[in-house]
Design a protein around this nucleic acid. Structure first.
Lengths: 140, 140
DNA sequence: CAGAATCCTCGGTGATACTG
DNA sequence: CAGTATCACCGAGGATTCTG
C-alpha cells in the first residue's frame, strides 16, 4: 500500500513462512483466518449463505458495522471468491451478494467450530474463573 | 483497560451482541476466533498439542515471535483452558506447557478448516486473479 | 441506494532492557 | 531460563462527507 489507508485490509500471511512441517498446519489455518478472521467477515458470510442479500439489508442485519467496513469486507470476500456481486442496473442501484459453493462448504466446516464452542463453553468459562483466582503474589 | 497497554489482548466479543438467531452462529464463531484468532495462537497451540513444550523451545519453533507476544499468547491460551502451565522449581526455572483435551478437540476441528483450505486453494487464487483483472473504470 | 474518499483513534504488536 | 516493564509504531476499524 503506497498510500495511507486507501484499500482493503492486508490479510496476507506470507506463504514463505509455511515451511516447517509442524507449523505448516498452523500456517494454513492462518491463511483461512486471513479470509474470515476479520471482525465482520463471518456475519456477512453467513447472512449471504442464508440467501442473497443487498447492501442496505446487510447494513441493517449486521448491526454495529459501518458503511466503510461493510464495503471493505464485501470486497475482500468477493476477491477471495466467497461472494458473488451482482449489479442490477435499475434506477435506484441494486446490488446483491450471493455466497458461492466454496463459501457454503466453508460454512459446513465452521459448523464444526460452533459445535466445539458450544460443547466447551462451560469449560472455557471455568478455566477463566480458575485463572482469575490465581494468587497474584505467591511470595507472600 | 484503564491504563495504556498493560495486559493481554482483549479478545472479548461482547456476548450481548449474540441475539439474532441467524447472527448467533456468527457470534459463536467470533468467540472462537477471539481465542485462536491471534497471530500466534494456532502455532503455539499446535506445538503444544504435539507434545509438552518449554518456553525457550517455543521461542525457537515459532520463529518470528517476540518474547512478549509469546508470553501474552501463552497467558491467553492458559486462561482459556487450552494450555496447562507447569512450573518445575528447579534451579534454572523450567516451565512446560501442555495442551488440554479441549485443545486437542479443537485441533481436530481445525483440521476440517485445513482440509477446506487445501481443497480450495486453487479456487481462491483463481478468484483473486479474476478480481484483479476487473475493469477499473467501466464508464470509459 | 451503494458506494468512494478522507481523517482520526486505538490497541495489537514489535524491540529493547531489566529481574528472580 | 522464563519471564516483566516500558516505549513506539502502524494498520484495522470508526465517523463523516461526497457522488453517480
Amino acid at each position: 500500500m503506497s498510500q495511507r489507508n486507501t484499500g482493503v485490509p492486508l490479510q496476507v500471511t506470507d506463504p514463505a513462512a509455511c515451511a516447517t512441517n509442524l507449523l505448516a498446519e498452523a500456517c494454513t489455518v492462518r491463511q483461512v483466518l486471513d479470509h474470515v478472521g476479520g471482525k465482520w467477515s463471518v456475519s456477512i458470510l453467513l447472512a449471504a449463505i442464508a440467501g442473497p442479500v443487498r447492501f442496505s439489508h446487510l447494513e441493517r442485519m449486521v448491526e454495529g458495522i459501518s458503511r466503510r467496513m461493510l464495503t471493505l469486507t464485501l470486497r475482500n470476500l468477493e476477491r477471495d471468491g466467497l461472494l458473488i456481486r451482482t449489479v442490477y442496473p435499475t434506477v435506484p442501484p441494486k446490488v446483491e451478494y450471493t455466497a458461492t459453493e466454496m463459501a457454503r462448504e466453508l460454512h459446513d466446516t465452521l459448523t464444526g467450530l460452533i459445535g466445539w464452542a458450544e460443547r466447551h463453553r462451560a469449560d472455557i468459562a471455568a478455566a477463566r474463573t480458575t485463572y482469575d483466582q490465581r494468587p497474584a503474589d505467591p511470595a507472600a
